[in-house]
């Protein structure tokens, strides 16, 4: 039996499979709410790894289809950008 508290779903914010399943067991099955409580999809990788995994867990545990689950919007910038680059000050260093 895998220890679900050791299975990392989101490496940016250190969220485990157990964290996600506990929320679903409490009745929180909306991916938007799971995102806000655990911060999945909100770290530097913008959900590239975790969102599909979380969607799969929700689908398995609730029987919802992927269409019903939906995908939270990706926010810009899709890759982290340093502020010095945005202010046009990238000649330092």
């Amino acid at each position: 039996m895998v220890d679900k508290s050791k299975v990392i779903i989101c490496r940016c914010n250190d969220v485990t499979q157990k964290d996600i399943e506990d929320l679903i067991d409490q009745g929180i099955t909306d991916i938007e709410m799971i995102k806000r409580i655990t911060h999945i999809g909100m770290g530097p990788c913008q959900g590239r790894t975790c969102i599909p995994l979380v969607a799969a867990i929700i689908a398995r545990k609730t029987g919802k289809s992927y269409d019903e689950i939906g995908i939270p919007p990706t926010r810009i910038p899709t890759q982290p950008v340093q502020m010095r680059i945005l202010v046009g000050d990238d000649d330092e260093e």
Binding site: M42, P44, R75, P77, P80, M83, V87
Partner: peptide
């Protein structure tokens, strides 16, 4: 010093 910090999300 914030120059060296990256913005990851905007909404």
């Amino acid at each position: 010093a914030l120059k060296h910090i990256s913005i990851i999300r905007q909404w």
